[in-house]
């Protein structure tokens, strides 16, 4: 069980076999997507099972960029996601500072409320927000979508950042205060630079959340020109017969950077999540 234990040869073989099988299962849809994206257009729906088809072609990749507004989707997604993350991190960091460093009436209930928000089904809040946005005329705009995204990200960001700030020793800020720094200065010049990694993680977390989101976007954005990439790809896959290859190619193009970023940041991300989750 422990890593100190000497692992016998037979047991080690079994372990490798098991992990190999698990990796195959994990890789399965990925390999299929790659295969389909390489197929020429005239036999997208074949039951051919080879990993790289004999007549492999990059036509689908070329077509999705030239024939579909793929770049526009990416641009829309990028803009919405960046805005959400920026607002989220800025507001969350200052609130997390108050929660981590000061006692004030409403602190405990505030933290409890932040926890509770994780339990509220997204679909539950989406309806009133959708109706209010409709009433305000913000339906079908970037603004509406950013507002809707901030709902889910803000409490969670505060919660995670508070967990991080708790681990930064107070004495540094106290020293700065003695040297004549203001409270805001201590926050801005001492704590924030020290928490750069955690801010980056929260930014990334917000970013991936908003970047990959489909359902809320499909409710709020109806204008095809405003579509984010999940809406676009969903549309392609909906037209199953003709555009399966385009869907696959688009998926590969989008997944590669996302997966790399995720794998690179996962170590920090996980420690951030567990830290925020375990500490009360």
């Amino acid at each position: 069980m422990s890593s100190i234990e000497k692992v016998g040869r037979g047991q080690s073989l079994f372990t490798h076999a098991f992990l190999w099988a698990a990796c195959l299962v994990a890789l399965f849809p990925v390999s299929r997507i790659i295969t389909i994206s390489l197929r020429p257009g005239n036999r997208l729906l074949s039951s051919d099972m080879s990993l790289i088809p004999d007549d492999a072609t990059l036509a689908s990749y070329f077509n999705i960029v030239t024939q579909k507004p793929f770049l526009q989707w990416l641009y829309n997604s990028l803009l919405i996601t960046m805005t959400t993350s920026l607002i989220g991190v800025a507001l969350a960091a200052s609130a997390a500072y108050a929660f981590a460093r000061y006692t004030f009436p409403g602190r405990k209930s505030g933290l409890l409320f932040l926890m509770t928000t994780q339990m509220i089904p997204g679909a539950m809040l989406l309806l009133p927000i959708y109706l209010v946005l409709t009433k305000l005329g913000l339906n079908n705009t970037y603004t509406g979508l950013v507002v809707a995204y901030s709902v889910t990200t803000l409490p969670f960001s505060i919660w995670i950042l508070k967990g991080y700030f708790d681990t930064v020793p107070r004495s540094l800020e106290e020293a700065a205060r003695i040297d004549g720094c203001t409270e805001f200065g201590a926050f801005y010049r001492i704590l924030l630079p020290l928490s750069k990694p955690s801010l980056a993680i929260v930014f990334l977390f917000n970013f991936t959340q908003a970047w990959n989101e489909y359902l809320v976007a499909s409710t709020i954005l109806q204008d095809p020109r405003l579509r984010t990439w999940p809406l676009g790809l969903y549309e392609l896959q909906g037209n199953f017969n003709s555009e399966w290859g385009l869907f696959a190619a688009g998926s590969v193009l989008i997944s590669v950077p996302v997966v790399l970023l995720f794998l690179y940041s996962s170590k920090y991300m996980i420690s951030g999540l567990t830290l925020g989750g375990v500490k009360g």
Binding site: A26, L27, P29, V30, I33, W211, N212, Y214, P230, L233, Y234, S251, I254, S255, V258, V259, F262, L263, S266
Partner: peptide, 9 residues
């Protein structure tokens, strides 16, 4: 990987 790939895809 299953966690890293965008869920929709």
């Amino acid at each position: 990987l299953p966690w890293a790939i965008p869920q929709l895809i």
